[in-house]
């Protein structure tokens, strides 16, 4: 291969930007996390790993980690199953499926703030869109103010907003499956259900993995709906880690401590992504041995 050093010039602007606004900030955050750094105070003493030690002791932080975990554990798998189901419905030779595909994407391109306001309204007690129906059965739930409902209200909304992009990804995966595989399954007299389990799903493993990892990463970082709808309440039940770090940094101004917390979050995300990657690899190997 002929070396073309002019390549450095082409990548220079993007790479300098990447250094300035991604990698240097990460290093800077590591540095900040070693100081008792308060935005409003001039003295910023070096305290070594104390912020990390404090974080491990901090009940509110672990409450937030737990909230993010349960949010992710429900919203991601349920959202994915729903999206796969819709993708299967839409992956048929039907007139007008493009229209449905477009309509389903609309919640995802909407303004997060407007959508949050809309869902506050949907969840209102008495006259909200949901309670109007529940009232007919004598029920009336103040979803966003009830400690055992608020989190699931956010989860439900995230399935609504996340459907479009996930569905399109699954659809791309479905379209890429060679039709010869289905023809072979047909010849073998396979039932649609069997074909789904033994052809469609195994062929979707890479897609599923991609959707799983990207959804997990973004679920761990949700912020706008929490900021707009619950502010972490009621009783801290929706205080997810993205919001928790925000309020540590920008409401309490403890940027050193918040940096330490963001690193712990980052490590947790990387660990989960790595674990998902390992699981997919063994899954793929399992299929290839089963086939051969």
């Amino acid at each position: 291969m002929k070396q073309r050093p002019i390549g450095y010039l082409f990548i220079a602007p993007a790479t300098i930007h990447l250094l300035l606004f991604a990698w240097i900030p990460i290093a800077y955050a590591a540095y900040l996390s070693l100081f008792k750094w308060d935005l409003l105070k001039d003295s910023k003493p070096f305290i070594g790993l104390k912020n990390y030690a404090d974080t491990f002791q901090d009940q509110a932080f672990w409450n937030a980690m737990w909230n993010s975990t349960r949010y992710t554990l429900v919203s991601v798998p349920v959202g994915m199953v729903v999206a796969l189901f819709v993708a299967l419905m839409i992956n048929q030779k039907l007139r007008g499926v493009t229209l449905f595909r477009t309509l389903y994407y609309i919640p995802a391109i909407s303004s997060g703030v407007a959508v949050s306001m809309l869902w506050i309204y949907v969840y209102l007690p008495e006259h909200g869109l949901i309670n109007t129906f529940l009232m007919r059965f004598g029920q009336n739930i103040d979803f966003l103010s009830h400690p055992s409902w608020a989190m699931w209200a956010l989860v439900f909304m995230s399935i609504w907003t996340g459907l479009g992009p996930r569905m399109i990804l699954f659809l791309a995966g479905l379209i890429a499956i060679p039709t010869s595989l289905y023809e072979a399954a047909d010849l073998d007299g396979s039932t649609p259900w069997k074909t789904f389990w033994h052809v469609t799903l195994p062929m979707l493993v890479p897609t599923t993995f991609f959707v799983l990892v990207t959804s997990t990463i973004s679920a761990f970082q949700i912020f706008t709906p929490v900021y707009m709808m619950t502010r972490g309440g009621p009783e801290g039940t929706t205080d997810v880690v993205g919001y928790h770090i925000y309020s540590e940094a920008w409401e309490k101004f403890h940027v050193g401590l918040a940096s330490a917390k963001s690193f712990i979050l980052l490590l947790a995300i990387l660990a989960v992504a790595y674990w998902q990657f390992r699981a997919m690899k063994s899954q793929l190997e399992g299929y290839s041995t089963a086939v051969s």
């Binding site: 300035l20 955050a29 925000y246 918040a258 940096s259």
Partner: peptide
């Protein structure tokens, strides 16, 4: 960088 743009870089980028 796509994996951790969000939570870790907000504070340092703000300070910069």
């Amino acid at each position: 960088s796509m994996m951790f743009a969000g939570p870790v870089t907000q504070i340092p980028v703000y300070l910069m």
